[in-house]
Simulated scan of single mutants.
Amino acid sequence: MFTGIVKGLAKVEQIEQVESLKRLTIALPSIAQGNIELGASIAINGCCLTVVEQIDDSRVCFDVIAESLSLTNLGQLEVGDSVNVERSFTVGAEIGGHIISGHIATTCEVLAIENQAQKVCWRLSLPEQVKEYVLPKGFIGLDGCSLTVGEVREDSFDIHLIPETLSRTVFGFKKVGDRINLEVDAQTQAIVDTVKRYMSNQKG
């Protein structure tokens, strides 16, 4: 589990094709280093990945299966790219965002970027399969960042990014047309699905 508070940027150092999967070698920033064991969970662009090899104190390897590569933006990574990184949540740690599982539902596209006073507004595409879970003022996970949803339309939604978020995450490098990993808030999904089942039972 993760909190959606990205700790820093990591670098993609190497990408190897290993049969049907890709092995990513990631150089972690100092804030994300230390006490890493084989099998540990680390979120890369919001995707929960398992450490399969530790080369040294800063470099670790992850195996990413074909399904994850197709569902997320990890399949588009190239050597030298920056990625958001967060270590897994520990009991007693502060939760500054919301609980994130690291299980990406789909990706959305950056449709527009608008600079506003003290913030940047992004308009993102709203994939059909997650429409009912993306609500105004609700939580959402984008590339592993816990963010609050702004305006929601039929086929798009807005988020507002402050300078701190832009400087700490990959969002500072993103441009129109880029794909962003999207994870819906688990509590929102549970409530919406429960209400849907209740209404369906009432009609029956």
Rank of each mutant, 00 (worst) to 15 (best):
R168M: 12
P29V: 00
I100N: 11
L111M: 10
R197V: 02
E114G: 06
I26L: 05
V195L: 15
F157K: 03
D63Q: 06
A105K: 14
L126S: 02
V6F: 04
P29C: 00
E151H: 13
V52M: 15
I42K: 07
G172C: 07
T165Q: 02
H98V: 02
E183N: 12
V18W: 11
N45I: 01
E86G: 05
I99P: 10
Q33S: 12
S30G: 03
D155L: 10
D143C: 07
R123S: 13
V149F: 00
K175A: 13
G138F: 06
I65N: 14
T107R: 05
Q14T: 13
L77C: 10
G97Q: 07
Q33N: 09
L124F: 07
G177M: 09
L21N: 15
K175P: 07
T50K: 06
E37P: 08
V170L: 03
A186V: 10
S20E: 15
R23G: 08
L71F: 04
M199Y: 09
G92S: 04
C108V: 13
E16Y: 09
L21K: 14
S125M: 02
S68R: 06
D143Q: 10
A105I: 07
E183F: 08
E109A: 06
S146C: 08
I44R: 06
I36C: 13
F62R: 13
A10E: 00
V6W: 00
V79A: 14
E128R: 11
N201E: 13
G141C: 15
K22C: 08
D193W: 02
D178A: 08
A10I: 04
I180G: 07
T50D: 10
T148M: 01
V85T: 04
N84R: 03
A112L: 11
I159G: 00
G4T: 00
I191G: 09
V83G: 01
E183Y: 11
S146A: 11
V192M: 07
G138V: 05
I162A: 07
K22S: 11
E109H: 05
V6G: 05
E78M: 11
S200Q: 12
A93R: 08
Q54R: 15
S146V: 00
I44W: 09
I15P: 00
G39M: 12
Q189Y: 10
D155E: 15
K137I: 12
R197Q: 15
Y133L: 14
G177N: 06
L161Q: 05
Q14D: 13
G75F: 08
G172H: 00
E132A: 12
V60T: 04
A112Y: 01
L161Y: 02
G172D: 05
A10T: 01
V120H: 01
L24A: 10
C61D: 12
V192K: 04
N45A: 06
D143A: 03
S146K: 03
R168Q: 13
I191H: 11
I26T: 03
Q33C: 14
Q54K: 15
Q116R: 15
L74T: 03
